[in-house]
Design a protein around this nucleic acid. Structure first.
Lengths: 109, 109
DNA sequence: TAATTGTATCGCAATATTACGATGTATAAA
DNA sequence: TTTATACATCGTAATATTGCGATACAATTA
């Protein structure tokens, strides 16, 4: 049916999956890297940096914004995007806890 | 066209996106949590633990295996799944570096 | 050998994603 | 007020994902 059964899972599982999904695209990873490396916020330079159409970039930015990973503020004609520090740290800690919860045991397959 | 332009991006960006995508589903997060918390490897108990059909679970396991996040070994009738320690640590470090590369600056939007 | 058990795969329907041209919108400059 | 610039949104085609019933397969057990 192509519809994820969200009601089966916990809110945390769904939220984590949502955040990971928002990042799970090479273009969106590239966008995040650009935003981070530009220190200050980047605007529509992304269209030139990456080789994608303006409509496509705008769509990817929207998804990152919807997930709460980035935030955008209008600055005259341009829009300034930057990392949402709250979500970023939350996700960082959640992933850290998740990955840290695994301890390799030698008696495994 | 519904086809990701992988050739535009670096191998690292594509690989990271692939790994994140494999994890970006609540069922697959739940499966990983189960595998981790069961310490030793879990088998088809997953079908009972989660409320999904056997075919669906098998498909999710296949995706995690294809991405290299888990590995499965046949043990008689059952199949034993566990975390692939190499990929796990690699992803852990890569994500750590990625999230750590962001330093919040106050002069931002 | 036949039946049972645990998984994998096939095939399908419903839905979601990706990419982009075309077009809309809002601000700034002429 | 017209024009230009920077984005956002719409609509659409191609493709991918999700979930599951049905079925195949492989290894034990009777």
């Amino acid at each position: 049916m192509g519809l994820t059964k969200t009601e089966i899972f916990t809110a945390e599982q769904n939220r984590l999956a949502q955040l990971l999904k928002a990042m799970a695209h090479p273009a969106r990873i590239a966008i995040l890297q650009q935003i981070i490396s530009a220190n200050a916020c980047i605007c529509g330079d992304l269209v030139e940096e990456l080789g994608l159409a303006q409509a496509t970039i705008s769509q990817h930015l929207k998804e990152l914004k919807n997930a709460g990973i980035i935030q955008g503020t209008i600055e005259g004609v341009t829009v300034c995007y930057c990392i949402n520090p709250v979500t970023w740290k939350l996700l960082e800690h959640q992933l850290g806890a998740f990955f840290g919860s695994y301890k390799a045991s030698p008696d495994c397959c």
